[in-house]
Design a protein around this nucleic acid. Structure first.
Lengths: 254, 254
DNA sequence: TAGTGGTCTAGACCACGGG
DNA sequence: CCGTGGTCTAGACCACTAG
């Protein structure tokens, strides 16, 4: 006969926090199928009482599961186990960040740098007036000696700002979007597309076999909500792993 | 002379929760550039005292900003305003979900359905033994009358399970991954690639001008951690908007 | 050692949902 | 109405960082 011993929360000093232990207990119940998708898990007050913790601590435990996308709170009615579906998926750009901030292994070549009067569409994106000039810079970004991506950026030309020199001086991508005259951005908006590279792009990026790529388009705004840089990266397939996990992956760890 | 009146937290019943008001106050300070990237915001205890709320409430206010990626907590040293960078970006698949669960406007055509002995690579992904047979189903998914995506899925063939009928019966994608013999998945792993469509794919999806697409690959696991479905979607460019916002976008709203 | 965030208590009342 | 989650209190002690 198998005796199921109810898991307890261990309150010794130096142990894993109580709320993490409790969230682990619930997570294991979900992973084992004891709490099935769609069913309600015990109320927070009940969890608190059963495991001898305070309501706030029980709540914090449930918060962990909410943030992991495992359960959904419904005010007034309960907390329910979610189905494992596409919905909770999200892809982060940490991988891109790791490369862009790895300044030691990063090399940036300016391919072209021009001042142009550009299309209406582009002026709209940058929020600038009638036929004002715009700087266009295209760069080849290499990482660990291999071509990694192409970057195009557009920004309004301001004769009073030493922006061009800064743009051209940029060696680390930590400051890629940053210039000395700008202490940062207030906000940004990004969009990801699939992209078929042109022959020229394939050649520059030396990805001979492959012409599928991501196009990552960005617009960043200053503290007056004025768009001040617009552009995109072309990143060949294989350079930027976009992965995501859903459901219960770490039920063992507390 | 301009008098700056310090914002207060309004504690009337029925008003916005105190922690949301306080997070809004801090957010506006960041948006206005009063708290610049890299600098420390006031300690939680200080916030609690200054705005007349309890420490837990002040903490909850800061939690909001942490979740929005605006600040970073450093244990023992403080909470700091983050730069607006690529790092905090993440792309969600809600848009895909909205289509896949919009069963009224969804139509699914089985293009092909076969039982094969497949390559070692594929058997490894499905965690099955030596040359065991595998079901392959390819579907054309249409939404509001227009082709939306192609889906390929592989799953182990089990003669004792009525899986094939279920797969073929599937009309709504809510149950696309689900079969009657399966109450759900424990976990899943997804990966997004750029993809250049073949002529055949372009023809089926009627996206004449365009052959750039996303390839969304998935593996889902049952409650024994056994991979039980593997496959991918081919989604032409323009069908699946992947967007993300970083930085301060809603400083007005509390 | 002083100051920070991290955890936790033992309650309270409110807002919401469904019977 | 009752049970649920949502907000909130007024503290406590611990863990960590930096001077």
């Amino acid at each position: 006969m198998t005796v199921i011993v109810k898991e307890q929360v261990d309150r010794k000093r130096g142990s894993v926090p109580a709320y993490m232990q409790l969230s682990g207990i619930i997570k294991r119940a979900i992973a084992a199928g004891r709490y099935k998708p769609g069913v309600r898990i015990p109320a927070e007050a009940k969890l608190a009482h059963q495991y001898g913790v305070s309501p706030m601590t029980a709540r914090q435990a449930v918060n962990v599961l909410v943030e992991e996308g495992l359960v959904r709170r419904v005010h007034g009615s309960g907390t329910f186990v979610r189905k494992v579906e596409v919905s909770t998926t999200s892809f982060g750009l940490e991988a891109l960040d790791n490369i862009l901030f790895d300044s030691e292994n990063l090399k940036i070549n300016i391919l072209e740098s021009t001042i142009d009067r550009v299309s209406k569409d582009l002026r709209d994106r940058l929020g600038i007036e009638e036929k004002a000039p715009v700087i266009r810079v295209s760069r080849l970004i290499s990482h660990r000696g291999a071509p990694f991506a192409i970057q195009i950026s557009y920004l309004p030309f301001d004769p009073e700002s030493p922006v061009i020199e800064n743009m051209l001086e940029t060696t680390g991508l930590g400051e890629l979007f940053l210039t000395k005259s700008n202490s940062g951005y207030k906000k940004g908006s990004l969009r990801l597309y699939p992209w078929v590279m042109t022959e020229k792009e394939v050649k520059m990026l030396k990805s001979a076999q492959e012409n599928a790529a991501f196009k990552l388009e960005y617009t960043y705004f200053d503290f007056h909500d004025k768009p001040c840089i617009f552009g995109w990266f072309i990143i060949p397939n294989g350079q930027l792993p976009l992965t995501s996990k859903v459901g219960v992956w770490n039920e063992k760890a507390n």
